[in-house]
């Protein structure tokens, strides 16, 4: 009987495993090999060159610039997104206290939940094009709004100013992700036992204390997962940067918004250095791996039973 069950299970996972092996594992294995070659991507010809690509990578200042930008994004994007999403989710689920101690969201919470989710439904390319219209200097929404409220002196050609371009890109990333995490955190908040929250309220805890002492600890696992996913998002940013920012292939002005994904793409598809780009991919793989492990390690907490 037991034997039959395992056989059934094995057969069930096999197709999935096979697809995974063909479309994920095998390209990865190939990328590791290609990173040691000078493959140009337009023929089968490739020469084994050992670790030359990695040596070049170490001295490639643009790669390090890109890495620095990704690091900034890694710090800012998850923190901002999770912060805003937690705030909005608590407003939607716990903030309104209409009748006595009943815990509920603010009025219209359901409507907001749907509206916040909208950006999640748009393809990155559409998001990028929309924000191009927001940031465009002479007829853009942002400068238009600033002019309308008498802050005309603050108008800027946002994406063409090196110090503002990366923050502008990060704003879009946060805007695009917040809605999803609002929904994620809302779902997690719904699973927090009401009696715990009500007890806190009766003991006189205000909303802030309730949030810090009760809600956040109980949401911690979800926040942790959100951090890993947002970290991965921040390690990428390729499509957004390529479409939104200035420069021959994006990443400008003057590499001010260069990200690893873009450097990698440009080396492969514009410069015809697929071997070198694969080396970058391999480096990124280990970076992301380390990042995910570190995040999960350092955000580890005791499990709370309830």
């Amino acid at each position: 009987m037991r034997h039959g069950k395992y056989r059934f299970l094995a057969w069930s996972v096999l197709p999935g495993l096979a697809l995974y092996a063909v479309f994920v594992i095998s390209p990865y294995a190939q990328a590791f090999y290609l990173a040691l070659t000078d493959w140009r991507g337009v023929s089968a010809r490739q020469k084994f060159i050992g670790l030359d690509n990695f040596a070049r990578l170490a001295g490639d200042s643009l790669f390090w610039t890109a890495l620095r930008h990704n690091a900034v994004m890694l710090l800012v994007v998850p923190l901002a997104t999770i912060g805003i999403a937690l705030f909005l989710a608590s407003m939607l689920n716990l903030a309104g206290r209409g009748g006595r101690a009943a815990i509920q969201g603010v009025r219209g919470a359901k409507f907001y939940k749907i509206v916040y989710f909208f950006p999640q439904l748009l393809a990155v390319s559409i998001v990028a094009v929309l924000w191009q219209f927001v940031y465009t200097p002479n007829s853009g929404l942002l400068n238009g709004a600033l002019n309308a409220v008498g802050l005309g002196s603050l108008t800027r050609p946002w994406l063409a100013v090196p110090s503002l371009a990366l923050p502008a890109v990060m704003t879009v990333m946060v805007w695009g992700s917040v809605g999803f995490y609002v929904v994620l955190f809302s779902a997690a908040m719904q699973s927090i036992p009401r009696d715990v929250l009500e007890a806190a309220a009766m003991d006189g805890a205000n909303r802030f204390v309730t949030f810090r002492r009760i809600t956040l600890p109980l949401l911690w696992d979800t926040v942790q997962v959100a951090y890993v996913y947002l970290g991965i998002l921040a390690m990428d940013g390729f499509a957004l940067v390529q479409i939104l920012t200035v420069g021959l292939n994006g990443g400008g002005p003057d590499n001010a918004t260069e990200v690893l994904g873009l450097t990698l793409w440009r080396n492969a598809f514009v410069y015809g250095r697929f071997g070198y780009a694969s080396a970058m991919g391999v480096a990124m793989f280990f970076l992301t791996l380390a990042l995910a492990a570190l995040t999960l390690r350092f955000t580890r907490r005791e499990r709370i039973e309830y």
Binding site: V24, G41, G261, F274, S278, T288, A293
Partner: peptide, 30 residues
């Protein structure tokens, strides 16, 4: 599970690494 999730997350992360390599090796008879 920590390592497993880290690896899973990393594999999700950079599909571009793999897509560069798709079909690169093994083809190309001369």
């Amino acid at each position: 599970t920590l390592m497993r999730r880290a690896i899973a997350a990393a594999l999700l992360a950079a599909p571009v690494t793999g897509s560069l390599a798709a079909c690169a090796i093994g083809a190309g008879d001369d």
